[in-house]
């Protein structure tokens, strides 16, 4: 479990004053959780998750990773082994000259025996469908493939916690879809692995069980995406846009048709479960034209 207690992070400004990027966050990331994190630009999302693996140490408050304190220099290595991080742009993360070496890089730093290292590299190349590219230089891969490589290199170190800091925002649509599918797979294949996923696209985390919304250094909302996205007016006020269905649904709720539905439901005429948004199974897609 990652535990944050009253975490405050301040940065110095050039003029000597301080800016508070994270402002008193208390939060638990439990074993096996898949958590989305959204918030307007500059709300402190990236700073917050950099506290998880001791890249940033809190100005005030405590961050514990499986009980290890990120302020304790003796714990930092172990914490970084447990908490793997994937950043926005794979070009800034990839350091090696071939795909294979990139996967091995982190393992070398863990000091693994060569035999163990080799078997993990093979396993990961296979798992992430990178075997055929093993001798390719990373810059010849597509954006989505590069991000897949960056994720593979982190997963090779077998972290318990995987943190994704906007891994889709510099990718083209195909790459975005690929990374999203991969994150879902990673969440499903290991029930102990916890994932925190930051994104600027709310629809990417729509299916996650838990969503955090940050604003001005604080966690404003914490819950199921459906309930959060339904608070349309509030989200728009803080500069976030829920997926378009929720915007449309809020227009609908004020329309005479919604009133009719409500009065029919009171009279017991309607079958409400059918039209309530989101409850129609995706297999039974309605026809757009009669």
């Amino acid at each position: 479990m990652i535990q944050l207690r009253d975490v405050v992070v301040e940065y110095p400004r050039p003029d000597g004053s301080r800016i508070r990027a994270v402002d008193g966050v208390t939060l638990d990331i439990r074993e096996g959780e898949l958590v989305g994190l959204i918030g307007p630009n500059g709300c402190g999302k990236s700073t917050l998750v950099r506290c998880f693996n001791a890249l940033i140490r809190p100005t005030k408050g405590v961050v514990l990773v499986d009980g290890l304190d990120t302020r304790d220099p003796r714990c930092v290595l172990e914490i970084r082994r447990r908490v793997g991080m994937v950043f926005q742009n794979p070009d800034n993360q990839i350091v090696s000259t071939t795909v294979e070496r990139e996967v091995a890089f982190g393992l070398e730093n863990l000091g693994l025996a060569p035999r163990e290292m080799r078997s993990r590299v093979e396993e990961v190349l296979e798992r992430f469908r990178l075997r055929e590219y093993r001798h390719h230089p990373p810059h010849l891969l597509s954006g989505g493939e590069k991000q897949r490589l960056a994720i593979a290199s982190v997963v090779a170190m077998r972290p318990r916690y995987l943190i994704f800091d906007e891994p889709t925002s510099v990718l083209d649509p195909a790459g975005r879809a690929e990374v999203l599918a991969l994150v879902q797979e990673l969440a499903e294949e290991d029930p102990q692995r916890s994932i925190v996923f930051i994104t600027q696209f709310p629809e990417e985390v729509e299916s996650f069980p838990r969503l955090l919304v940050m604003r001005q250094g604080k966690v404003l909302l914490d819950g199921e995406p459906k309930g959060i996205f339904a608070q349309v007016d509030m989200l728009l006020r803080i500069g976030l846009e829920p997926p378009v269905e929720y915007l449309a649904e809020s227009l609908w709720a004020k329309s005479p048709l919604a009133e009719r539905e409500r009065s029919e439901a009171e009279k017991g005429l309607g079958n409400d479960d059918q039209t309530e948004f989101g409850s129609i199974p995706s297999g039974e897609r309605p026809k757009p034209i009669p």
């Binding site: 449309a248 609908w252 048709l257 539905e261 948004f277 129609i280 897609r285 309605p286």
Partner: peptide, 9 residues
């Protein structure tokens, strides 16, 4: 797609 779910009813 959302609109089509509304049109069912």
């Amino acid at each position: 797609h959302w609109w089509c779910t509304k049109r069912l009813r």
